[in-house]
């Protein structure tokens, strides 16, 4: 699953550790999500969406849906 977390974080000038603190997760978790090595759980994805005040689908893109387009 692709995501725009790195871009959204950079727009706000937040470090990975900073974003991790806001989401109550570790810096390693943010790094793994940004690199696409880990897909967050639904509760964490909702938390991220709430933090950036955006719908989940604007942050996370399903690669299968992307290929269909």
């Amino acid at each position: 699953m692709k995501n725009r977390l790195k871009v959204l974080r950079a727009e706000r000038d937040w470090s990975q550790a900073n974003l991790g603190e806001r989401l109550d997760v570790s810096r390693q978790t943010i790094n793994a999500i940004e690199k696409g090595r880990y897909d967050p759980s639904l509760p964490l994805a909702f938390k991220i969406a709430r933090l950036f005040a955006m719908p989940i689908e604007e942050i996370f893109k399903d690669e299968i849906d992307e290929k269909k387009k």
Binding site: D24, V25, S26, Q28, T29, A32, I33, Y38, P40, S41, L44
Partner: peptide, 9 residues
């Protein structure tokens, strides 16, 4: 107690 990614690791 740790977060979900660290738990998976």
């Amino acid at each position: 107690e740790i977060d979900e990614y660290l738990r998976a690791q």
